[in-house]
Simulated assay, not measured.
Amino acid sequence: MKAALLAMHYQNDVLHADGKVRVGVAADDPARPRLIASAARLIAAARANGVPVIFVRIAFAPDYADCLRNCTLFRRVAETGAVQEGSWGAEFFSELAPLPGEAVVTHKRNNPFWQSGLDEAVRATGAGRLYVAGIATNHVVEHGARHASDLGYSVAVVADACNTAQAHLHAASLENLAMLADVIQVEDAVAQMKGTQ
């Protein structure tokens, strides 16, 4: 079965130690280097095996006119000035950035598929299986995996290429997702990607 990888929110404001968003990785979290290394290995394996990588980002206009502030998460984004379009914070973390020609999708809600063109980008690859990774596990990863499952894709959540600022939320999210997706490690994804295209 053809596959694609969704690499979500590997952006400076979300992943960099100087970023403004703290739902994904705590500023002083020693797990940060492991997460970056795992995500880099996953992306490299996808590229090496011809698995398309779709980079998913979140970004808002500088005045946040396009940010629906109906929940605490997005109110905080606007209050802190995070992921403003055109800013360093909205850019991809340098070690996990797309290469020229790789698909990039921008979304503005919790669900990365919501009015973003992500499903169209996935369908263009012909993939029936989606590897999902990113930050935060209990936000974009969980929303994305659930929606992908509802769309009929076979979903694998790559646990060690995901994280949250609180370990118990990461674990709880993965436990919930285990009923809808395969919860695997990067080494499993790397092995599965060989010969999928």
Rank of each mutant, 00 (worst) to 15 (best):
Ala27Cys: 00
Trp88Thr: 05
Ala103Arg: 15
Gly101Ile: 08
Ser154Gly: 10
Ala165Asp: 11
Ala178Trp: 08
Val190Gln: 12
Glu91Tyr: 00
Val56His: 09
Ala145Glu: 05
Asn49Gly: 06
Ser116Glu: 06
Glu102Gln: 07
Ala65Met: 02
Glu120Lys: 02
Thr125Ile: 06
Gln197Trp: 05
Ala97Phe: 08
His143Cys: 14
Leu118Tyr: 09
Cys71Ile: 15
Thr196Leu: 10
Phe93Pro: 04
Pro100Met: 09
Ser116Gly: 06
Cys67Arg: 07
Arg146His: 05
Leu169Thr: 13
Ala31Ser: 10
Val21Leu: 15
Glu85Val: 03
Ile36Trp: 02
Asp18Ala: 12
Cys71Arg: 06
Val157Arg: 02
Ala44Trp: 03
Ala136Leu: 02
Gly50Ile: 04
Ile43Gln: 07
Asp28Ser: 07
Leu96Val: 10
Thr137Arg: 13
Ala178Val: 08
Ala82Asn: 01
Val77Ile: 10
Gly152His: 02
Asn111Met: 08
Gln84Asn: 05
Met179Tyr: 11
Ala97Gln: 11
Val25Leu: 15
Ser116Asp: 09
Val105Arg: 02
Ser149Phe: 14
Cys162Met: 07
Pro98Arg: 13
Leu130Ala: 07
Ala148Asn: 10
Asp29Val: 09
Phe92Ile: 04
Gly86Ala: 01
Gly126His: 10
Val190Leu: 12
Ile58Arg: 10
Ala7Asp: 01
Arg22Gly: 11
Tyr153Ala: 04
Leu73Cys: 03
Gln192Lys: 06
Phe113Lys: 00
Val158Gly: 10
Val21Tyr: 13
Phe92Cys: 02
Ala97Ile: 02
Val14Tyr: 09
Arg129Ala: 11
Ser154Phe: 00
Gln197Phe: 06
Phe92His: 06
Gln197Thr: 05
Gln115Ile: 10
Arg146Phe: 13
Gly81Phe: 06
Ala4Glu: 07
Val14Thr: 13
His170Pro: 07
